[in-house]
Design a protein around this nucleic acid. Structure first.
Lengths: 368, 368
DNA sequence: TTGTATGCGTTATCAG
DNA sequence: CTGATAACGCATACAA
């Protein structure tokens, strides 16, 4: 049905020149006489010619395609688990990466690493053939696999632990962000007994946030008992569930609950309310990410902003640099985070729905 | 630095066979003696061989890559406009599409259609060379451009108006969903004066939702004045802004405000509260999408659920069918929506944070 | 400035 | 069952 698309040969004969000339005017490295160039361009338009990417890639040895691999959230049996907590986070990264890739003349290939069932390693390996380089998100592959592939193929790690030596890593300053949270809670609100709600147990991001919070809280004279280190799954429902269990188990209610992302904070606020606990009067709640909705919740969410989109941008730029043979200045790139103080920690929120005005509605505390 | 990857020739000589044999065992169409097959496989593993996608695509005339093109939200000057309202929606589609593509043996190429500045048409045209088929989201191209490309290249439209004849369209039943909303508001809550908050003015989805609501409300004896048809931009802030203006302009406050998506509903609830109006006692608010957070808001959001992920899945399947030469049964595929009744319309919410149990916590009303 | 010829890595069509 | 070999569409070194 669909007749095969025009090739460079069609254009050449249409314009009465050789394919070499067509190629030249299209890629414009060499000089071409204006007249012939116009003829070629006319023919291109006439035929609606678009260079075949496969042929081009084969010929010049570069497909101009970058791969971005993320780990599928285990949707499991739970059909409602569309509620993917990592969703906002991942997708913001994707946006940034796509935009940056395009700007550098590349396209972005997306992969969920073979779904949940499939062999992640095999899936990533296959992508190796379709792309020029790969960006791997948190949790897609164990470190040893990583270095195995990283030695033979350009790779950038995103939001990893930063401990992998065989590849460039881009991540955010979880430690600084959590320290800022701890300081604020202890110094400003005089809170002592904290709890932490984590994402997936195997997430480096979640782990480093929990560890940093615990360390800072302890140093500042607060307390974060192991029993109050709650393990959830990045989702509102998951967080609500573990907090519900924690409340049901009796024992003193923590004075503050810090969550590894904003979705979970919403779930926590919700379940606290269901138990007659008011935020922030009875319990302070803090999130992480600063998703757009955060400022519109009631109370507006105090949270740690991380430059999610920028994460994607920087990852792509690092990868492109790698591909162009530029030796990476640093193998561990850390992007800053900042504490955004709103109402859920007990501060008086004065911000309204407007956020574009000159001065931000919320206080900002740098993490570094 | 990176030595060029092994080719099929390397594998062949390593295994002591011809490249034809290697190709055969790798693609497994023809029979091969077990012994030689093992030798080849061993060589493949040994060398870490991965077929070059470009060469493969060139040879077999199919790149096994599908493109998904979305319109970049005009981030404009406003740096905070990361607040992309369409984000959740688009990204859920992307997930579904990616998963489905992978299942069918394809990869997914993502494109924001040249950023906001670039020529969308040119951008889409270029993608034509890197992919086997394209899925175009709402707003990326005007209809005439669409049909121009659609005639020469496999295309599926997503969330369009459904009026394009030159391509298969996949969309949701906006009309049914909005009718259900109107009926519920009028019949159950005896509300009459409604308002509608739209997304971008040029979005078919938003337009059809507004039109359907208006029609249904009027038919049911309610009222939706032109002045109460508020045009926003899919974002919380945008919605908050237009509603604030509407309130400031005086005049009777609508009894219900229906929004074209959930993000905007959140912004509306927020700004209403800022004006001393309580939801749902003073004003009922309804959203659209049923994002995961919706049930955890206070009050839990009454909204229209649409199968976002499924949208991506179906689009991919339609496209793959097209590529395999299967004539599309229908050129306009409409996925069902359903009204999810929670608290923000005035109903008593009894659902808690759990949502996976046998019976849903919220009432469900089919749209058809 | 332009044309000719070769290579890129696979698949697929032939013979053997 | 296996091995040569011809496409596939484009870029490019080399000639003219």
């Amino acid at each position: 049905m669909a007749e095969s698309p025009p090739t460079i040969y069609d254009v050449a004969s249409e314009a009465g020149v050789s394919i070499a000339t067509v190629s030249r005017v299209l890629n414009g490295y060499s000089q071409t006489r204006a007249a012939t160039r116009d003829r070629v361009l006319a023919a291109v338009r006439e035929l609606g010619f678009v260079p075949n990417g496969a042929a081009r890639g084969l010929s010049r040895g570069s497909k101009r395609i970058l791969g971005l691999v993320f780990a599928h959230t285990p949707a499991d049996d739970d059909l409602l688990a569309e509620e993917e907590g990592s969703l906002l986070f991942t997708d913001s990264i994707v946006r940034g990466a796509e935009e940056s890739a395009e700007r550098h003349g590349y396209s972005l290939l997306l992969s969920g690493a073979g779904g949940e069932h499939g062999d992640h390693a095999a899936s990533v390996n296959a992508l190796t053939g379709k792309t020029d380089g790969l960006i791997l998100l948190d949790r897609v592959l164990p470190e040893r696999r990583l270095s195995a592939i990283g030695k033979r193929f350009p790779i950038v790690l995103l939001a990893g632990s930063g401990r992998c030596r065989s590849a460039v890593t881009v991540r955010v300053d979880n430690e600084g962000g959590m320290r800022a949270v701890a300081e604020h809670l202890v110094a400003v609100h005089a809170l002592r007994r904290m709890a932490f709600v984590s994402g997936f147990a195997d997430s480096p991001d979640s782990a480093s946030r929990g560890a940093a919070l615990c360390l800072a809280v302890t140093e500042l004279g607060g307390e974060l008992r192991p029993a109050d280190h709650l393990t959830a799954d990045w989702t509102s429902s998951g967080a609500a569930r573990v907090v519900q269990q924690r409340l049901a188990s009796g024992g003193e209610v923590p004075e503050a609950i810090v969550c590894a992302n904003d979705q979970m904070a919403v779930g926590v606020i919700h379940v606290l309310a269901a138990n007659g606990l008011h935020v922030p009067d009875d319990v302070a709640v803090v999130g992480f990410d600063d998703v757009p909705l955060a400022r519109h919740l009631s109370p507006p969410l105090t949270t740690v902003r991380q430059p999610t989109r920028q994460l994607g941008v920087v990852a792509v730029e690092s990868l492109v640099a790698l591909l162009e043979g530029i030796a990476p200045t640093r193998r561990d790139i850390v992007l800053p985070t900042e504490l955004i103080v709103r109402g859920s920690c007990g501060c008086v929120a004065d911000g309204d729905a407007r956020g574009s005005a000159g001065s931000a509605a919320a206080a900002v505390v740098g993490s570094r």
